[in-house]
């Protein structure tokens, strides 16, 4: 009986681990990284991709019509910055329209989609959440700094979308699951 309980516990732990972190590389290279909400977190993810030696192009304002299949994975750096939106000359509403069109085209082209939310609580709130929800619904994998998921929003959305969610303590810890996601 004791052995049975131990085996069950081991299997459960394996399952939890698999859920917490993408164990199998699934994403093709190269990637296209864009900012959903125009926060400076976009710059941080570029550094992560550089250090993970993942080839990518970066365009914070890329539109659906620019997706032509040359990039195989779409990395969405999600989090709203009113300052960033203002500097980019785009309204929150227009950004949401861009996002939805981008997600639709990415699905048509069968791109892998990775959501990254690394700004913590500062990148949550009504405006950010409006971007987070459609991105998570379309994503294949998500990486979130835990401070951004204190209310469990990402956990819930990941469960609904049946995708793996990697929760990390710090942005610098996001590099390992991101690198591991690429073949």
């Amino acid at each position: 009986m004791k052995r049975f309980i131990l085996i069950c516990a081991f299997i459960a732990a394996l399952g939890a681990s698999a859920f917490a972190q993408q164990s199998t590389a699934f994403a093709e290279k190269p990637a296209l990284v864009t900012a959903i909400g125009q926060s400076a977190d976009f710059e941080m993810i570029k550094v992560l991709l550089n250090r993970a030696k993942v080839p990518y192009t970066a365009d914070p304002l890329v539109k659906a019509e620019k997706l032509d299949g040359s990039a195989k994975t779409l990395v969405l750096v999600v989090g709203a910055s009113s300052k960033g939106l203002g500097a980019a000359g785009i309204s929150a509403e227009a950004e949401l329209v861009r996002t939805q069109a981008l997600l639709k085209k990415a699905k048509e082209l069968k791109l892998s989609i990775i959501v990254m939310h690394v700004g913590g609580a500062a990148r949550r709130g009504a405006m950010s959440d409006a971007f987070i929800k459609p991105c998570m619904e379309a994503a294949d994998f998500a990486i979130v700094v835990a401070a951004g998921d204190e209310d469990g929003l990402f956990t819930d959305l990941a469960a609904k979308a049946k995708i793996n969610l990697a929760k990390v303590d710090r942005i610098s810890s996001a590099g390992a699951p991101l690198a591991a996601a690429f073949k």
Partner: peptide, 25 residues
């Protein structure tokens, strides 16, 4: 800004210091 972003990663990794990043408007 890319130099800044790289430096902020190094600060986290080397000293556990997390700073936010913002570009000039």
């Amino acid at each position: 800004i890319e130099t800044a972003a790289g430096a902020l990663f190094d600060l986290e990794l080397d000293y556990g210091l997390s700073l936010k990043l913002e570009p000039s408007n």
